[in-house]
Design a protein around this nucleic acid. Structure first.
Lengths: 138, 138
DNA sequence: CCCCATTTGTCCGTATGTATC
DNA sequence: CGATACATACGGACAAATGGG
């Protein structure tokens, strides 16, 4: 897999796509370190900026986690707690606001579930830790 | 609103925070273009890199959408279609895979709802266009 | 159609800070 | 301690896309 500088899609998006495929295919398994930024710039013949923006995309998708001084690793998907969606409620998925990310201690690239109860009451739950259920009626 | 280079919080985070507030307050309404990168570097007396990283944050939050040669606009949240979550099903929120982003034509920073029906059947819906409901039982 | 101003994309050089090993 | 690697931040330069005239 290689990068085409003349393509209409930005190089940093192409690099993110390539790495995403390598992760989703299992070639880069959870816990495995990605090549360093310097390595990737050489490997694909591109600049730092493109590599770093690609990493930024993958972090924003929750696929990888970067530790300063160490590198970037593939994240493993966490356990999910099953929570019942109350009758009369509805739910939407969206990205958290900055405030919500702090309060819920969310990593980058983790969406939230916004549960809307009856009368304007809204509850926000971390999207990577919750599975909402609607039980079969008894 | 201004930026403090000596703060512990990075300049680009500060810029993202400022722009996010201007968007959420309605000052920058959906469809409106943000100031250009050059404009923002002048306005806040910072480098272009910090500006671009701030934009990257806002894109990853689904707040804005950038087009090369044109600019960055505040995303308008489309109407959400109300869909009933079937009895016995469950749902999780996560970021889409690369394939899903293509097939569903999703922008950066848009999560998906993964609906798990009874026996391993899985359905994926764009998170910015759907509101899942559980009606009150009759 | 071309021309042009604007705007984002990309690369490079440089520098400093911080975290890991 | 040093070597490595990423984070932040500035500057310059050119390429490429957009949109208007």
């Amino acid at each position: 897999m290689t990068v085409d500088p003349r393509s209409h899609t930005p190089v940093y998006v192409q690099v993110a796509d390539i790495l995403r495929r390598r992760i989703e295919s299992g070639e880069l398994a959870p816990g495995v370190s990605l090549p360093s930024e310097a390595r990737l710039t050489q490997e694909y013949g591109i600049g730092r900026e493109a590599v770093r923006m690609a990493m930024s995309i993958l972090r924003s998708e929750g696929l990888v986690s970067t530790v300063r001084g160490h590198g970037t690793r593939v994240r493993s998907s966490p356990e999910r707690q099953r929570v019942e969606l109350p009758a009369g409620a509805s739910v939407v998925a969206r990205m958290p606001t900055g405030r919500e990310r702090n309060e819920l201690h969310l990593d980058e690239g983790v969406p939230v579930l916004e549960i809307r109860h009856g009368k304007g009451e809204v509850e926000v739950k971390p999207g990577d830790q919750v599975e909402l259920t609607r039980p079969t009626e008894s």
